[in-house]
Design a protein around this nucleic acid. Structure first.
Length: 427
RNA sequence: GUGCCUGUAGCUCAAUCGGUAGAGCGCCGCACUGUGGCUGCGGUGGUUGUGGGUUCAAGUCCCAUCAGGCACCCCA
């Protein structure tokens, strides 16, 4: 046997069962997004490298993007994130698009990273953005939409927490303790690591970027102060807004959350499982300068992204994923013998005309095998048409779960099948 | 891109000190030639990830490589 060629590292094969999960997720995403008035859109998966070079942060482009030359010699990248494409498309039609712009999208992204649990090279991401409003209530709205999605999946505030902060407020706080001279990127990097490093190592890193001992103490105090948000008008507004939207219980202030991407300017947030066992489920915030940075007019914007991998792990652990076989067939029409092929196909055709999902077993193998197949696929009904049935112009309908089998007249088949399926869905 | 750990049947795993690969589940068949699940019996299953090396002998030791996991990095 020739060896099977391996899949590309970090990619996942979506067999029907996995595809059913992805579609289950997609269905919830679509329903929630539309409920809040967002419109679906999509960008190319391939973009010119220049688009990302403009903004996303050096790390993302230089080390994590799949970059290559096309046949004409131009440098292109498999998109590592969607926001630059969004900024590009909005900038191109800035004059004609009615504002506010509420858009959502779900599609594949690529990052050349080392795969591990919760992190792969090709992943699917839900993006939802609101452009054209500077209001903090816009930040609260997108954050609430993401919380609604988690709620729709069956997760609760006991299982997931949204941690919220504001970059502009943090910059103000940092200035208060005399850190405005130090590059804010470096300080944000330090803030990001407070939970990952030991106290000594963290202090050493802080000293390395120029913080005095006293400043380190004040910074630590700032980061652990759970009530500091009350001094921020924006954050007060944010929490009032999520309260009005009925989502307050999902959100907590946390000064340690600053988010990695360079382009965030205002409110930032991320959702994680309470035990912090996994990576962030989703993350987002305000990015008021990005549209202008890719060459458009200045348009304020806020939004978030949620990858499919971590939310899948968290949902699975919480036991929320329904039985998804990936099989939607309602009826299997068995094939008793070769010479019944036409009769069986006609039966299937009648059933399909009534909008039922029907498959015909393609080979006249033992009924045993055909029913076994129906059982394994989770097909609820099997129809048998053999010589006995043909003689009396009837067919047999078997309900797999109960084992009950009925003879119905050929003409009454559709009605009989419908009533059996009805009993099934209501039970 | 860096460090550490792990790769044995389709899946989950065994195999003592280096001694010539085994179980459960699955799959196939039969009991049951017009009826699935449950049960019983039988069968199929492998270049031990791949390539080299050491050895009389390698699943086991060594090197390389690929893949997965953990940490770093980064982030969905």
């Amino acid at each position: 046997m020739t060896p099977i060629i391996k899949a590309v590292r970090g990619t996942r094969d979506f067999y029907p069962r996995q595809m059913a999960f992805r579609n289950w997720l997609y269905g919830h995403i679509r329903a929630i997004s539309e409920k809040y008035g967002y419109q679906e859109w999509e960008a190319p998966i391939l973009e010119t490298l220049d688009l990302y070079a403009a903004k996303s942060g050096e790390e993302l482009v230089q080390e994590q993007a799949f970059v290559f030359e096309d046949r004409g010699g131009a440098l292109v990248a498999l998109r590592p994130e969607l926001t630059p494409s969004l900024a590009r498309m909005v900038a191109q039609r800035a004059q004609q698009l009615p504002r506010p712009i509420r858009w959502w999208s779900f599609g594949p992204f690529w990052r050349y990273e080392r795969p591990q649990k919760g992190r792969v090279r090709e992943f699917f991401q839900w993006n939802l953005d609101l452009l054209g409003s500077q209001s903090v209530s816009a930040d609260a709205e997108v954050a609430s939409v993401s919380a609604e999605l988690l709620m729709a999946l069956g997760l609760t505030p006991e299982q997931v927490v949204f941690r919220v902060n504001s970059r502009s407020f943090m910059e103000y706080c940092l200035a208060e303790i005399g850190l405005s001279d130090i590059a804010s990127g470096a300080v944000f990097g330090l803030i990001d690591r407070i939970d990952k490093l030991s106290e000594e190592k963290w202090a050493a890193n802080g000293a390395a970027i120029g913080l005095a001992d006293k400043q380190l103490v004040m910074l630590r105090e700032l980061l652990l102060d759970r009530e500091r948000w009350r001094q921020s008008e924006d954050l007060c507004t944010f929490f009032k807004a999520v309260e009005a939207l009925g989502m307050r219980k999902w959100f907590e202030f946390d000064a340690r959350v600053v988010r990695g991407l360079d382009y965030y300017t205002g409110v930032v947030f991320e959702a994680r499982d309470r035990d912090a066992k996994y990576r962030a489920i989703l993350g987002g915030g305000r990015y008021d300068k990005l549209v202008a940075d890719v060459g458009g007019e200045s348009i304020p914007a806020t939004g978030f992204a949620m990858g499919d991998v971590v939310v899948g792990l968290v949902s699975e652990e919480a036991g929320l994923i329904p039985d998804l076989s990936g099989c939607n067939t309602q009826i299997l029409v068995t094939l008793f013998a070769e010479e019944f092929t036409e009769q069986s196909m006609l039966l299937a055709r009648d059933l399909r005309a009534a909008n039922l999902a029907v498959e015909v077993f393609p080979d006249a193998v033992k009924l045993q095998k055909q029913l076994r197949y129906a059982d394994r696929q989770g097909i609820p009904l099997a129809v048998v048409l053999g010589p006995d049935e043909l003689d009396s112009d009837e067919v047999s309908v078997k309900h797999l779960q109960s084992g009950a089998q009925h003879r119905v007249s050929r003409a009454g088949l559709v009605a009989g099948v419908l009533s059996l399926l009805d009993g099934e869905s209501s039970s």
